[in-house]
């Protein structure tokens, strides 16, 4: 499955390098949603994450001629997404730290109301938003993108021991926050 996807990506990349922009549209279509999920794991704000992702795809278009057909395109793309998002996070960190508690409480109340009619997917995404960026990122790379530890290492630059710790803590915290958000309704979701 992964191999056929890699071959399809390679053929699309060659077309893009020959000047076929519609092939790049196909590449974006294939990876935009997973890339956004990874970006949100780090940045947390969906609007900022989408803006950052737009810049990432523009950067990817201009750098595509440098892509060496050795690794998979997905790994290459996710590495750019992760690096760009961490750089953005560094820029935004100061602004985030200035948010006051009143604002955070307001968001939590809004979330509770919002959750009444939300489906499972929204519960899961809200839970992932509460995790630390590294934990949410590693969880999504491992379970959503089905990356192996080695691939996560290539994408994030983290050591394998850190990835394992983040995976372990991420699983525990995910369950903790999911229980906190859903309370008794957790059993219905399971």
């Amino acid at each position: 499955m992964k191999n056929s996807q890699t071959q399809r990506d390679y053929s699309l990349i060659r077309k893009v390098n020959d000047g076929d922009t519609s092939a790049f549209r196909q590449l974006i279509f294939a990876y935009k949603d997973v890339s956004l999920s990874l970006a949100i794991s780090i940045i947390k704000d969906p609007i900022v994450a989408e803006d950052v992702l737009q810049d990432v795809f523009i950067k990817v278009y201009h750098k595509l001629h440098t892509f060496k057909f050795k690794a998979s395109f997905a790994t290459w793309l996710y590495r750019i997404v992760v690096n760009t998002c961490y750089n953005e996070l560094k820029k935004k960190k100061h602004t985030i730290s200035l948010q006051n508690t009143t604002e955070t409480d307001a968001i939590l109340n809004y979330e509770k109301d919002y959750l009444k009619d939300a489906d499972h997917k929204k519960y899961i995404n809200l839970t992932l938003e509460k995790l630390k960026p590294d934990e949410a990122l590693v969880l999504r790379l491992f379970y959503l993108c089905e990356c192996k530890i080695k691939e996560i290492q290539d994408i994030t630059g983290f050591k394998s021991s850190k990835i394992k710790v983040d995976l372990h803590r991420g699983r525990e915290n995910f369950q903790f926050y999911l229980k906190q958000i859903l309370g008794d309704d957790l059993n219905n979701l399971l």
């Binding site: 922009t21 989408e50 999504r140």
Partner: peptide
């Protein structure tokens, strides 16, 4: 199974915005 459902969709005109940016 739960995390594999956590894909977040981009806005409808995302691809057009990227192509315009390019």
């Amino acid at each position: 199974e739960m995390i594999s459902k956590s894909t977040i969709e981009t806005s409808d005109d995302f691809i057009n915005k990227v192509m315009k940016g390019i």
